[in-house]
Computed example of a mutant assay.
Amino acid sequence: MGAKRFLSALFVFLCLLGSSAIPGKNLRARRPCKRMVFYFHDIIYNGKNSKNATAAIVGAPAWGNMTILAGQNHFGNMVVFDDPITLDNNLHSASVGRAQGFYLYDKRDIFTAWLGFSFVFNSTEHKGSINFAGADPLMNKKRDISVIGGTGDFFMTRGVATLMTDAFEGEVYFRLRVDIKLYECW
């Protein structure tokens, strides 16, 4: 009888050893349940482009103004945006939704921002939204932010979005490539 208990206990121990009870073990090996790539196009209002601007400076440091980003690293500026999302890098391609939210430039000595936004979809393929939040160290070629939830087709989803600046023109236009990897899909 003692040998059976020992073998049963050993079996349970080995099962636990191979489970996700070990921090980080299976998370690195996990594959995403859904992966998508989108582009969003940000056109900042500069006092002259009101017909096509999709973003506006809504907060500026005391020395700044609301039509020109603050000096070095844009520290203190807060921008609200409602940008088109496309499946390719062409601004004039069919929009599959809108990227809506804000970013604020949050460091004086390094060009970096903090993002909080949602992809709100209006296409036949996707309904609902995906929510994102996190630091965006803009000088890095690739940077990750958290996927913190969603609605509709993306109800309670979690994951990581890898951002890459795909193009920029001065301080008025930039395009981000967003590679979304979802690890919790409902």
Score class of each variant (00 low, 15 high):
Arg28His: 08
Ile145Gln: 04
Gln72Asp: 14
Val80Ile: 14
Val172Phe: 00
Ser146Gln: 13
Gly18Thr: 10
Tyr39Thr: 00
Leu69Gln: 09
Phe119Val: 03
Gln72Asn: 15
Met156Gly: 09
Ser20Met: 04
Ser123Met: 06
Gln100Gly: 02
Ser146Asn: 13
Ala9Tyr: 09
Gly116Pro: 00
Leu10Tyr: 06
Arg35Tyr: 05
Glu125Leu: 13
Ile85Met: 10
Leu16Val: 06
Lys142His: 14
Phe75Cys: 08
Ile148Cys: 06
Leu16Asp: 02
Arg177Gln: 14
Ile85Gln: 02
Gly150His: 05
Arg143Tyr: 05
Ala135His: 14
Ser93Trp: 08
Asn140Met: 12
Met156Thr: 13
Val37Ser: 03
Tyr103Glu: 06
Thr157Gly: 10
Val172Cys: 09
Ala53Lys: 04
Lys127His: 14
Thr54Ile: 03
Val147His: 04
Ala9Asp: 14
Phe117Thr: 02
Gly152Leu: 12
Gly159Asn: 09
Phe119Asn: 01
Lys181Leu: 07
Ser146Pro: 00
Ser8Trp: 05
Ala113Ile: 10
Gly2Met: 10
Ile180Pro: 08
Arg30Met: 13
Met66Arg: 10
Phe11Thr: 15
Gly18His: 12
Leu16Ile: 05
Gly59Ile: 00
Tyr183Cys: 06
Ser20Thr: 08
Met78Leu: 15
Phe11Lys: 14
Ile68Pro: 00
Asn65Gly: 00
Lys127Gly: 05
Leu115Ser: 06
Leu176Ile: 11
Arg108His: 12
Pro61Asn: 06
Arg28Met: 08
Ser118Thr: 04
Leu27Ala: 13
Asp83Phe: 01
Leu69Lys: 10
Ala94Trp: 03
Asn140Cys: 06
Tyr103Trp: 11
Ser19Thr: 10
Phe132His: 06
Ile68Asn: 08
Arg31His: 09
Gly76Met: 07
Leu91Pro: 02
Thr112Arg: 15
Ile130Lys: 02
Val79Phe: 04
Cys33Asp: 03
Phe154Ala: 08
Ile180Met: 15
Ser50Leu: 10
Gly101Trp: 00
Ile145Tyr: 07
Gly18Pro: 02
Asn122Cys: 13
Phe154Ile: 07
Asn46Tyr: 03
Thr67Leu: 01
Gly150Ala: 09
Ile110Lys: 15
Tyr173Phe: 12
Val58Asp: 01
Leu7Asp: 07
Arg177Asp: 03
Asn90Met: 09
